[in-house]
Design a protein around this nucleic acid. Structure first.
Length: 884
RNA sequence: GGGCGGGUAGCUCAGUUGGGAGAGCAUCGGCCUUACAAGCCGAGGGUCACAGGUUCAAGCCCUGUUCCGCCUACCA
């Protein structure tokens, strides 16, 4: 047997055990096993990613589940991988090139993509190493990348099928355009932030130069794209217009006045400038009235020819210029400060422009309907349920999904146009010639697909689809998806849509939505805010296990996590406590590892086994329903306060041989049994330290991962449950606590051994105390323990009252009687408040008439106990007073 | 504008069918008691945001108010 070091040093063991697990293939999922399957696909981190708190929480929870299920005998597949993260990755590599004085345009598309692959080879696996550092037990041999050959094939197949089913189409629509990233963005990729700008009221005169209509806008520069002014058909103010046209200032062209119910009569003057090419609503209005679409801002954010002399000017510069030009012509009626929400690119924060553009879209409605149904029917459960309405709400109001991106890094859209006949061909493979005119000159679309398009296929594309693989058969649908709510729409809803459509089955049975890890103000952690706590540093400092345990303990459903290093430190202490308890156990167990018998004699042994059995129940039911914090809390409470504080101390006399050889042997076996199994219960949360201790235990072979998780329903261990031992043990602990309380309150040194008298009229209680006197004497530091029937109260004694007994600690000449009176009066005061409440209930007719009998019984019992105590306290005080 | 979540001890937070207000950290007092000072023992500390209501009984259910946070949105 190896002795353990005095303190646990995580750095020394974590790497070692991770390598051991990988070497022993502990994370490998079997394609042949007949055991029940359990599968999770990891939310693929961006290949550019660096491990942050969000990953850490997400991965820890998945690892807890996977390790738990493996120990329970499931055939577990945890599918790992990374996401190619189109825009993000392109940005990273572009920045790197820029540092070398190069640009992607200099390189050209092909060379640039080579450069991205090169970059991925060099630094793309950083995040994977960091996940391993966390202890993630993924089946790494199966690692996938969204740009892998296989996954790309799946992407093309899905695209082509959706196209032929009429669920993908190409067309001219208003989309969100980022001028910096130079690409379209989906609605989800636009973040709305409130900014303070101006609302400009501009007069568009009638052709006769008279009055005209006053329109209000936040973006005056778009006026060059105006092709109408709209008013509400029922607006009284415009009942008698002198003209059906107005003159567009600066441009000088005439535009129509149209009537559309979309216009709000209470906003501004009730006249709306209509710019179909630069506003989604105006676009719709334009369609209804057949208005021309004039694009006046180009893809670089510069004004086009349509802006006349402002052509070539930056859009924001142009805004100022337009305003001052209008002022000169006296056409600005007023400028009022205006707060409104403006869309920003989620990647680079540039102000996004609604822009007319030819893009590819997924027709989302039909797909969304099935995704809603699946949750309504319970085929997929969302946990906690509070997220379900959000899910429905978004899917019910879903708009078509713009999937084309004008960047280079990603899955190029598998569509070609014939240069000759202009036919559009959508196909898995590049066609040799145009099927229509047979001409070989075909040009592929340059656009790539939204990154989330490939992520949407992740649950089945990673398992080999479109091939029919054994993996799919065994592990699809997956058991649970663990994710943060921030990607519920981006990802979860879309996986549901694609999974149902292509696999004819939901991608996961459960969706566990965990909290977001925030900073102390409740803000998302972000580099720009400087409020980031780096998980890697936390792990360095406190150990991975402590960090994981903290995350699990924090993971209460429905509430965000505010990360605090203090908490991690606290749980490091817990790890160390476990370590030292194991050290203690090893010192006493010796070389052999006796098995427990089907029956144990000593009370502490009975008690801890009963408590242990209870722990198994709590842990399993908590983990089965994703109450990670409950499981962690129960384990913490058990290990520290039940196992260490009470059991190990109570077991000492037996372990030191003071209670005979039989009890000593029995205690060794129970100590070993409980420790061993508790380590297994803890392993999903703190894999490293449990594996380390496991290998030091006598009689263990191989990895702790080979053992089986205790079952709450196991008939063979049903006998462990022992309520009688729990009742008896509580007598013992009450006495010990009572004596300790006196010692503490009276400032008596622990080195001072006390004389203690226990008086009770309950023979059973006296018997329990007598037969466990050794434990009480040891733990309460008693020199002389007497147990007797209720009788004469001891003189000059400190007194404590517990259920069914009174404890006297004679302290003649040692204690200050006035101080003791004070202490007792404080006790009385405490009881009185409670007693009043209880009495009030019992005097209440309604309570007695309407409350269930078991509750009334409980209250009566409590009343009896409290009033007896109070009476005894009062008697004791009176008695002491009579001495003074 | 709409929706959701939250306000519980000094701090960070648990509290799952309504029936004993809890943990960790911090604080105070006492201890090197042969696993552990990263420890042990003891103690103090809360009108459960506010106001009503339902109930024999409310931190928990209902209504309103207020403060904070998040998500979402095409009123220029």
């Amino acid at each position: 047997m190896d002795q353990l070091d005095k303190g646990y040093e995580p750095q020394n063991v974590e790497k070692h055990w991770y390598a051991f697990w990988e070497e022993q293939q502990k994370f490998v999922a079997s394609e042949e096993s007949t055991s029940s399957s359990y599968s999770i696909v990891i939310p693929p981190p961006n290949v550019t990613g660096v491990l942050h708190m969000g990953h850490a929480l997400n991965v820890t929870l998945q690892d807890v589940l996977c390790r738990y299920k493996r120990l329970k005998g499931f055939n577990v597949l945890w599918m790992p991988g990374t996401d190619h993260a189109g825009i993000a990755t392109q940005n990273v590599v572009e920045k790197k090139l820029a540092a070398e004085g190069r640009s992607r345009h200099q390189l050209g598309r092909e060379k640039f993509i080579d450069a991205v692959w090169e970059w991925r080879k060099e630094s793309g696996s950083a995040i994977i190493h960091q996940l391993k550092r966390l202890g993630a037990s993924c089946d790494w041999d199966r690692e996938r990348f969204t740009m892998d050959e296989g996954l790309s094939l799946a992407v093309r197949k899905v695209f082509v099928e959706l196209y032929h089913q009429g669920l993908i189409y190409k067309g001219d629509y208003i989309i969100n355009w980022c001028h910096r990233c130079h690409t379209a963005l989906s609605d989800l990729e636009v973040e709305h932030d409130e900014i303070s700008g101006n609302l400009y009221h501009i007069r568009y005169p009638f052709p006769n130069k008279q009055e005209g209509l006053v329109v209000a806008t936040t973006r005056p520069e778009t006026m060059f794209g105006d092709t109408a002014v709209a008013i509400h058909p029922e607006d009284e103010r415009y009942r008698n217009l002198t003209s059906e046209e107005v003159v567009l200032p600066l441009a000088g062209r005439n535009i129509k006045i149209i009537r559309d119910t979309y216009v709000g009569m209470s906003f501004g003057t009730g006249a709306l400038k209509v710019t179909p090419a630069h506003d989604p609503n105006d676009f719709e209005i334009g369609n209804r009235h057949n208005l021309p679409r004039l694009k006046v801002i180009d893809d670089n954010g510069k004004m086009t020819e349509g802006a006349g002399k402002f052509a070539g000017m930056d859009r924001f510069k142009c805004r100022e210029a337009v305003v001052s030009a209008l002022k000169k012509q006296n056409l600005i009626v007023k400028i009022e400060p205006y707060h409104h929400n403006v869309g920003h690119c989620y990647r680079c924060k540039t102000v996004v422009e609604p822009n007319l553009s030819r893009q590819w879209f997924v027709r989302a409605k039909p797909l969304a309907e099935k995704a809603i149904e699946a949750v309504q029917q319970g085929t997929t459960r969302i946990i906690p349920e509070v997220w379900t309405p959000n899910y429905y709400d978004w899917l019910n109001n879903i708009r078509d999904w713009c999937i084309s991106r004008q960047i280079w890094w990603g899955h190029q859209i598998p569509a070609w146009t014939c240069e000759v006949c202009k036919k559009l061909i959508v196909s898995m493979k590049a066609p040799d010639s145009c099927p229509s005119c047979n001409h070989p000159a075909l040009i592929q679309e340059t656009d790539v697909l939204d990154t989330w398009f490939s992520s949407a296929l992740w649950p089945f594309s990673t398992m080999g689809w479109p091939d029919v693989t054994p993996l799919l058969g065994k592990f699809y649908p997956t058991s649970v998806l663990v994710t943060g709510f921030d990607i519920l729409f981006f990802w979860v809803a879309r996986m549901m849509m694609m999974g149902i459509h292509f696999m004819k089955d939901v991608p996961f049975k459960d969706v566990y939505v965990h909290a977001l890890v925030r900073d102390e103000v409740g803000k998302k952690m972000s580099k720009s805010k400087g409020n980031v706590i780096d998980p890697l540093i936390v792990m360095d400092q406190y150990g991975t296990d402590a960090f994981r345990f903290t995350l699990a303990a924090f993971a209460a459903q429905g509430r965000d996590i505010k990360m605090s290093e203090k908490r991690v430190e606290g749980y490091r202490h817990f790890i160390n406590k476990l370590w030292n308890a194991s050290r203690f156990a090893l010192i006493h167990i010796g070389e052999d590892s006796p098995d427990i018998r089907d029956e144990v004699m000593s009370l502490p042994n009975q008690w801890i086994l009963s408590r242990y059995k209870n722990l198994v129940k709590t842990t399993c039911s908590a983990l089965d329903s994703y109450f990670f914090n409950d499981a962690a809390g129960a384990l913490y409470q058990f290990v520290w306060h039940e196992f260490c504080d009470w059991y190990l101390e109570a077991a000492k006399p037996a372990l030191y041989g003071k209670e005979g050889e039989d009890v000593q042997e029995e205690t060794k076996s129970v100590l070993m049994y409980v420790l061993k199994n508790t380590l297994i219960l803890l392993h999903p949360f703190i894999p490293f330290v449990t594996e380390e201790i496991w290998h030091k235990l006598p009689g263990t072979h191989g990895s702790i991962m080979d053992s089986s998780f205790p079952s709450p329903d196991d008939q063979k261990t049903a006998w462990l449950e022992n309520p009688d031992s729990e009742r008896k043990m509580s007598v013992i602990t009450n006495i010990i606590t009572g004596v300790r309380n006196i010692r503490g309150e009276m400032n008596l040194l622990p080195s001072l051994k006390l004389k203690v008298i226990i008086q009770s009229d309950e023979p059973q209680l006296r018997d329990t105390v007598l037969s466990h006197a050794g434990i009480i004497v040891q733990m309460a530091r008693i020199s002389d323990l007497r147990v007797e029937k209720t009788g004469e109260r001891a003189k000059s004694a400190a007194t404590a009252f517990i259920e069914g007994a009174v404890i006297y600690v004679p302290l003649e000449g040692i204690i200050d009687l006035n101080k003791e009176i004070q202490r007792l009066e404080k006790e009385i005061a405490k009881f009185s408040i409670e007693l009043n409440g209880v009495s009030r209930k019992l005097n209440n007719e309604d309570f007695l008439g309407k409350a269930p009998p078991d509750i009334i019984e409980k209250v009566k019992e409590k009343h009896g106990m409290l009033s007896a105590k109070q009476q005894q306290l009062q008697l004791t005080i009176d008695k002491i007073k009579s001495f003074i």
